[in-house]
Amino acid sequence: MTGRSRFESRSDDVMASSYPEQVTSQGVDNDDSGSETSSIVHNGSVISTVPDRHGFLGGTQYSTDPKQQTVPAIVVLRREQKWLRMLAHWDRVMNANYKKVRERCRKGIPPSVRPRAWLFLCGGKLLLEQSKTLYKELILQEGDARWVDDIRKDLHRQFPFHEMFVDQAGHGQRDLFQVLKAYSILNESVGYCQAQAPVAAFLLMHMPAEEAFWCLVSICDKYLTGYYSQGMETLQIDGEILFGLVKKVSPNVYKHLKKQKIEPILYMTEWFLCVFTRTLPWDTILRVWDMFLCEGVKIVFKVALVLLKFSLGRAGVLKKCPTMYETLEVLRNPPQAIMEEEFLINQVSTLQKNTAFIKEN
């Protein structure tokens, strides 16, 4: 799936179809006159003037609710200290005690060390050290006009309500362009695939452009090898593997999908190619990525299995899906409750323990 693709149909893409160079606004009455925040109208959508804790000004990911601290502050502090010690001796720790690293990733990486931990986990740090000047050299090149044109068309579609990307002339879209262009030059056989854009944008929200670039290289070339190539043969093969796993995890869902002849590629493409960055709530995405960058693509499989099982496997749901249309609609819009951080991560952990057919490291 190179160049243009099905991702253009997403609702946030439509709302962001023509961003100006600067945010133009007009006042909107705020019901709470004592509130420290206010709202503006931006391209027909009402957004906040103050970002939420993840940097969103509006859209489906925006939330004014503070994160509920389920882990005591003293525990978070201890975890931070443990991660800092691991990162200071990374090679030795990974070689001697990978299972401990995996356990700590499954518990959730503390936000204060998450960007650095991700860089180390995926091998981006090593790639950067091996080619210290390469990124700077790549961004100075013009790139293939075909890919450059496609990249420019996609910039405004990536998290358009996030403070980094809301301004067309801002550093967020500029860095995103450079990262994607650099990858298209580095890996000419792949070039640019539209699904790489949300992955790169997600990384840029957490780290500088050069580090995000090397993380993207690692994800595209090692974690999701072949996913972004034209024809998507690897993705189709993994789709069949996923379908076989559904048969073991949720036989009734498997029978339903088989009866309606719904190919896996119809519902799992965006999940796998974008690593759930366009599907799950933000706190859940962060936890999924903590595990994904440690354990690899099998985490993507396990999250997909949870979504399939609890979207379609709930009591009475299959009866409400007499045709392919209703079934795919459910899978495109999973119930919010099953995507919440605590529920989904717990279910993935249950799969970790109970599914011997998904091999553990």
Rank of each mutant, 00 (worst) to 15 (best):
D144A: 06
D144Q: 09
A145S: 11
R146G: 00
W147H: 14
V148I: 07
D149G: 00
D150W: 05
I151A: 05
R152Q: 10
K153E: 10
L155D: 01
H156C: 08
H156N: 10
Q158C: 14
F159P: 09
F159R: 02
P160W: 02
H162T: 08
E163S: 11
E163H: 07
E163V: 12
M164P: 00
M164F: 14
M164I: 03
V166E: 05
V166C: 07
D167W: 00
D167H: 11
A169E: 02
H171G: 00
G172F: 01
G172R: 00
R174Q: 12
R174H: 09
R174I: 09
D175E: 15
L176N: 06
L176Q: 06
L176C: 09
F177C: 05
Q178W: 01
V179D: 02
V179C: 08
S184K: 04
S184T: 07
I185A: 06
I185D: 11
L186E: 11
L186H: 13
N187M: 10
V190D: 10
G191N: 10
Y192P: 07
Q194I: 11
A195S: 11
Q196Y: 07
A197Y: 10
P198F: 09
P198A: 03
V199H: 12
F202M: 06
L203G: 00
L204S: 08
L204A: 10
H206V: 11
P208C: 03
E211N: 15
E211L: 13
A212E: 03
A212S: 04
A212T: 01
W214P: 05
C215T: 15
L216G: 03
L216A: 04
V217W: 13
S218Y: 14
I219P: 01
I219C: 02
C220L: 14
C220V: 15
K222Y: 07
K222N: 14
Y223K: 02
Y223E: 10
Y223L: 15
G226D: 14
S229K: 14
Q230P: 03
M232L: 15
E233G: 02
T234E: 15
T234P: 02
T234I: 10
L235N: 12
L235Y: 14
Q236S: 12
D238F: 12
D238T: 11
D238L: 12
D238Y: 08
G239I: 09
G239E: 04
I241V: 15
G244M: 08
K247S: 12
K248A: 13
V249Q: 12
V249L: 13
N252F: 07
V253Q: 10
K255N: 10
K255G: 04
H256K: 15
L257N: 01
K258V: 00
K258W: 02
K258F: 02
Q260M: 15
K261D: 14
E263L: 13
I265Q: 14
Y267G: 04
Y267T: 07
M268T: 07
M268I: 13
M268Y: 06
T269P: 02
E270R: 15
L273P: 08
V275Y: 10
V275R: 07
